[in-house]
């Protein structure tokens, strides 16, 4: 009868049945709000992001925040051991994660973490990749699409030159990295379905 809200950002994914869904939600909200604010602060640091209209900044952040967080917290997922360490420091085995109701989305996250992790990016390369992820997010709702496209192009160019300057004889890494963008879109869609399915009991 326990109540579950299985998300690696949630410091208390399991609560007694006596706890209301509203309380579960509010305590979860206190966990993910700082993470969202961190993404916003990161976005402000992206050269050119703040030249976009405020409306477009909000739209990009709305559609891209989960994907940036997925990259940001990718290391919480251990694809070899099939464990996830939540932000509360607790590591959950696959059996426990399944018991928490985590299914195909979790499998896709393990897969993504393995692929991204295998590229062995440096922290600054990962940060620039996160910037590309954000500006590559879904553009429905964006007004000045041209400005976003230009920003994306500039950031992709910067990412390519950073990676190729460090690994001149590895021409496969950059394309492999860009292939992670559609993976993130798929994860985002799966995660959105989960969000939609989440209801707060009256």
């Amino acid at each position: 009868g326990a109540k579950v809200l299985a998300c690696p950002l949630n410091s208390c994914p399991v609560a007694p049945a006596s706890r209301s869904s509203q309380e579960m939600w509010e305590s979860f909200s206190q966990c993910f709000t700082p993470a969202v604010k961190e993404v916003v602060e990161f976005a402000k640091s992206i050269p050119g992001f703040q030249t976009l209209s405020q409306h477009d900044q909000v739209m990009l952040l709305k559609s891209g925040t989960f994907q940036v967080l997925m990259v940001r917290f990718c290391s919480l997922f251990d694809p070899k051991e099939r464990t996830v360490t939540f932000l509360n420091g607790q590591t959950y085995s696959l059996a426990s994660l399944r018991a928490l109701g985590m299914g195909s989305l979790l499998d896709a996250m393990f897969d993504f973490s393995e692929k991204l992790g295998s590229l062995g990016l440096e922290p600054d390369e990962m940060a620039l990749f996160m910037a590309v992820v954000l500006v590559s997010a879904d553009r429905s709702g964006i007004v000045e699409v041209g400005a976003v496209e230009q920003l994306q192009e500039n950031l992709i160019k910067a990412l390519r030159s950073l990676i190729t300057s460090r690994r001149p004889d590895d021409s496969t890494l950059f394309p492999k990295l860009l292939l992670r963008l559609p993976d993130l879109r798929t994860l985002n869609n799966q995660h959105s379905d989960k969000l939609l399915a989440f209801r707060i009991d009256p």
Binding site: K37, E41, L61, K62, S63, T65, L196
Partner: peptide, 27 residues
Amino acid sequence: FGDPASNLGLEDIIRKALMGNLEERQE
């Protein structure tokens, strides 16, 4: 098709975090 982000109140958090910068600039 509902807006999944609204389930989290995401837009509100984002606007406040962005506005935080606007208020600083105006001061």
